[in-house]
Simulated scan of single mutants.
Amino acid sequence: MTETIADTSNDDAVDAALVARWQAGDERAATELVRRHAPALARFAVSLGERDEVEELVQDTFVRAFQALDGFRADSSLRTWLFTIERRLVLDRRRSQARRRARESAEEADAAIGHTALDAVVASETQQRLTAALDRLTPMQREVFTLRVAEGRSYKEIAGIAGTTEGAARVHYHNAMRAMKEFVDA
């Protein structure tokens, strides 16, 4: 155990030195940071269910990290911070893909079914109520709800993505559904 803690603090010290060198203009330090952390980020992306474009996701993670490096407070290890950035990128991509699929489905439905003006008003009002209901959820409830409803993810997958347990994911989903129904039915 002591050896692991020493290794971790040594890794943190090496990362801190590399970050300082990069901020001082040493491009080789950035290359070394990528070499040190890219394999772990790739494994983490795969563990989040990403199969395609893992390399691009890792690259985007480093781009974001290097852009925000001045704001890194070292409250956690650099690797943990990188994992957090990558997780957010994955969630952003999934939300974007879900919106795109929903938009495409809606466009297909619009093409197949003629809507009356009243249908459009009701659909718009319903969309507004759903959006307002989503905004009232806690961030965790919103994340779990979106992953379950829009992405069709299992509770096990949701737990891995959200960094929680499967049971907690079920509870957050149940509470989100109850809150959504109460607000929409009100």
Rank of each mutant, 00 (worst) to 15 (best):
T146G: 14
T146K: 05
E143F: 08
R170P: 00
R170N: 09
E166P: 00
R148D: 03
Q141Y: 03
T126P: 00
R136F: 02
D135T: 10
K156A: 15
A132L: 09
E108G: 11
E125D: 14
A169N: 04
Q128R: 14
A123I: 05
E166I: 01
I158L: 01
A123W: 05
A112V: 05
A123M: 09
V171C: 01
G152M: 09
R170D: 02
R129I: 04
T116K: 04
F145K: 07
K156E: 14
E108W: 12
A111M: 09
A112F: 04
R129F: 02
I113E: 07
F145S: 11
G152E: 12
R129T: 11
D110Y: 13
A169I: 03
L130N: 01
T165P: 00
A168T: 13
V149I: 14
R142V: 02
S105T: 14
I161G: 01
A106E: 12
D110W: 07
T146Y: 06
G114P: 06
A109F: 11
S105R: 10
G160R: 14
T131H: 09
A112W: 06
S105I: 08
M140T: 15
D135C: 02
I113K: 03
I113R: 10
A106N: 12
F145H: 15
Q141I: 04
Q127P: 00
L147Y: 09
A159S: 05
I113F: 12
A162H: 03
I113Y: 12
A120W: 06
A123G: 09
L118E: 15
